[in-house]
Amino acid sequence: MADAPTLRVENLKTYFFTRAGVVKAVDDVSFTVERGRILGLVGESGSGKTVTGFSILGLVDPPGRIVGGRILFKGVDLLGLPPEAMRSYRGARIAMIFQDPMMTLNPVLRIETQMIEAVLAHEAVDRETARQRARDALGQVGIPSPDERLRAYPHQFSGGMRQRVAIAIALINRPDLIIADEPTTALDVTIQGQILYEVQKLCRERDTALIWITHDLAVVAGLADTVCVMYAGKIVERGPVDAVLTRPLHPYTIGLIGSVPSRNRRGKPLQQIPGMAPSLIDLGPGCAFRNRCPRADAACGGEIAPIAPEEGREVRCIHTTPADAA
């Protein structure tokens, strides 16, 4: 299976069966991440990007359920695995970094205890080796004097340092895939720069594949190889970062890029997408963006299949050029 990509998600569907109706949080999502590559998964709140990450790790809780599709990790379908087998992947070969590092860290245990535990859960090594590895991992994410810091508790770290510890824990078992969910959103710009630097270095040196989930197009622009733009549970546009950001095809991507302040003339009104994201409850067929879209017409109410306008790109829209607009 040497040639299989690190991760291939095919037609993933994760639905939440609530009393109010069925929420199609992830609806027919497909993408691939190769070794050492960074995929940016971009979307606004409620677009399904986090649920996509949770689905890959098998962390979707009821009333949510994966109702269709395949998640192939190095050729193995994770959805077919029994829970014990999945556990041996989670945290070892696939790791996750959350937005809030305190979700990862136990406030009443020393960093050392938590890191050693993460090693021993997956490997039969002695404590000293595990401790050694914890120290190396802290060093790798740029934490000074890792020996002392191992003895500290999470509250003794600043926000940026805590996020580094969380990243170190994700790295400690040398995973093949890391899913990072808005890991720098809560951090200051200067600290974000440090974390992005460490992450880039890691993917280069270790050939780790990375999925970077974010709402911030600008971060993705500097970091990722490929980008997937999600809207209302679907990937509406996918392709190489440079191509998508310089020549976006989907009206939503165009609107999103247009509404970033630095893209607009100073002091001039920003381009804005009118309206707001639709409720996902019992969302009917057709393009979910059509009520906010300047190019929408009657045809947008039908089933929209993704098209591939050029090599390596995919877009879920039938009006990819303005001339198409009726």
Binding site: T190, L217, V219, A221, A224, D242
Partner: peptide
């Protein structure tokens, strides 16, 4: 981070606040 900048290497300001 800026959209226009394209792919680049981050550096970060050394040290903590």
């Amino acid at each position: 981070p800026r959209i226009e900048a394209g792919r680049r290497l981050y550096r970060g300001i050394g040290g903590e606040i």
